[in-house]
Amino acid sequence: MRRFGWSRILFNLLAWAIVFVVSFPLLWTIVTSLKPQTELFLIPPSLLPGEVTFEHYAKLLLETRFLAYFSNSVVVSVATTVLVVAVAVLGAHSLVRFAYPGRERLAQLVLFTYLLPSVVLIIPLYLLLVRMGIANTLFSLVVAYTTFALPFAVWLLRSFMAGIPQDLEAAAMVDGASRMGAFFDVILPQALPGIISTAVFTFILAWNEYLFALVLVNQDSSRTLTTGVITMLVTSFHIEWSMLMAASVMMSVPVIVVFAFLQKHLTRGFGAGAVKG
């Protein structure tokens, strides 16, 4: 019994050592963001801040356009998520429960676009948005984000909704519901966990997007966090490390919040379908 106990402790130590190494860059970011500017360039670096300061956070929030970028990111991500999930729920329901010619082809098209590289679409999309006169707007980003978010959402929701028993819809229809009535009364409530997961993943995808934001927007008022922070704090000659680390932490806050509150839903999401990366 004693030997068993010791090997367990050793195993736990080893496991957590590995976890620590993997997550070290994240911890190091937080540590760095809390160090005073002067301590940043100590050689060798100090592992724990000698003095904890929130000055970088304060400076970022009060003296830079960080909050403007943040709110742009929120607007674009929320708009993309709402649009994409609403459209995808109907589309996925159609793909799972209805029979019409071309349905299988459509499902294949969704999968194909799900795997399609963004760089292939970016040039024609850029030209299209310029011609429509909406380049450099947040709306153009929503349009662009739809290109990867919609296939992703349809694909994920399709596998979620295929897991809802056929009999439920049938029972509702026999009980007096129309097909759409059965959809609203029975399918939608059952799909809710899947819809939440899909919405969360879509939000994260949009929140983290960089390439479209880089190409389609070069006007500061429409920049999102990913491009805004870089243009603001990284120049060829100088990098504001302290503020960058503070910005990195704050950019990750929504993701962390979502992660913490919805972990159960998220792991279910992994089971149901692959996650885009």
Binding site: V19, V22, S23, P25, L26, I204, W207, N208, Y210, L225, T226, V229, I230, M251, S252, V255, I256, F259, V275, G277
Partner: peptide, 11 residues
Amino acid sequence: LILFPYFMSTV
């Protein structure tokens, strides 16, 4: 902790 890098922004 292990899963987090996947969900954070590439930036």
